[in-house]
């Protein structure tokens, strides 16, 4: 059995306004090195879950262990945030300083890292996201995708074991979106960083190792992308969508074609249809 880097046992979180819990008694685990996608309509509790993982919020009930740590005191929270970094949705609202490399250094400066070490770690992080040539640029001159890459570098420089992306591609154009997703995939595959990828884009979720669908604070569906998206009607009822090819496969099957289960990409569809011809 693989080692579980995140373990949530009956975790709930209720905001103080007394409404229904944003996260309601959920239990799940994440494997070390896994790429987990989290889906769900707006207000389903995805962002609250992200903030719990990063100890920006603490569970109001249940037990949440992140990289062996259970955040109780304020100091624990900093330890959790060190091993679990977070990239937010709006690239403009997470960059703190007026120079790219200084922003990447921000987290390390907060941790009290010696200046020399900050310097080379920032350099490495910027080159990792392909932003070395912009080290001395002002963030306000960058595109949304570039700003988001800087935000990833700022987290990366802190050497987290987990990175939570909270709808980090929602405000980007197709190129920026492709870039950030590719970076997350590479960090996951090559550097073994565990990724929790929260998104509204089904094509992205289709490429994850596993998908969790949230609804009203609970986990509504869980499994591999193929397992989840093959339940087309259920997924649509949860306010989501199904990747284009799976939707088509579903309709062809309903029209009587004996298409095999789990066709997700254009390539797979071409192969499958040629087989049937």
């Amino acid at each position: 059995m693989r080692d579980k880097i995140i373990q949530a046992q009956n975790v709930s979180f209720q905001y103080e306004d007394g409404a229904a819990p944003a996260v309601d008694d959920i239990t799940f685990t994440v494997d070390r090195g896994e790429f987990l996608a989290v889906l769900g309509r707006n207000g389903s509790g995805k962002s609250t879950l992200a903030k719990l993982l990063n100890a920006l919020l603490l569970p109001t009930a249940g037990e949440l262990t992140v990289d062996g740590l259970r955040a109780v005191t304020e100091d624990d929270c900093y330890e959790v945030r060190k091993s679990c970094g977070m990239v937010f949705q709006n690239p403009d609202n997470q960059i703190v300083t007026t120079i790219v490399e200084e922003d990447c250094a921000f987290g390390l400066e907060n941790l009290g890292t010696p200046p020399e070490e900050i310097r080379w770690r920032v350099k490495a992080a910027l080159s990792d996201v392909g932003m070395s040539e912009y080290a001395e640029a002002s963030p306000s001159m960058l595109s949304g995708g570039q700003k988001q890459r800087v935000a990833v570098a700022g987290v990366l420089a802190m050497r987290p074991k987990i990175i939570v992306f909270d709808e980090s591609t929602a405000m980007l154009d197709p190129i920026g979106r492709r870039d950030i997703f590719a970076i997350a995939q590479r960090l996951n595959k090559e550097e073994g960083i565990t990724v929790v990828w929260i998104t509204h884009f089904m094509e992205e979720a289709a490429l994850a190792d596993r998908v969790i669908v949230m609804d009203a604070g609970k986990i509504a569906l869980e499994g591999t992308p193929k397992q989840v998206f093959s339940q087309t009607d259920r997924v649509l009822a949860l306010g989501l969508d199904v990747p284009g090819m799976m939707k088509l496969a579903d309709r062809l099957r309903k029209a009587g074609l004996p298409l095999k289960e789990g066709v997700m990409t254009v390539n797979e569809m071409v192969v499958e249809l040629c087989r049937l011809k």
């Binding site: 990063n54 920006l56 900093y78 945030r81 977070m86 609202n93 921000f106 900050i118 310097r119």
Partner: peptide
């Protein structure tokens, strides 16, 4: 205000806790 709130959260997420114990890359 919305931006300020989000920025504060992002700073927290990167372990900001004031000037105490903080170092600077550029000395």
């Amino acid at each position: 205000f919305r931006r300020a709130e989000e920025l504060a959260l992002a700073m927290d997420a990167r372990c900001y806790r004031g000037g105490k114990g903080r170092t600077r890359m550029k000395q």
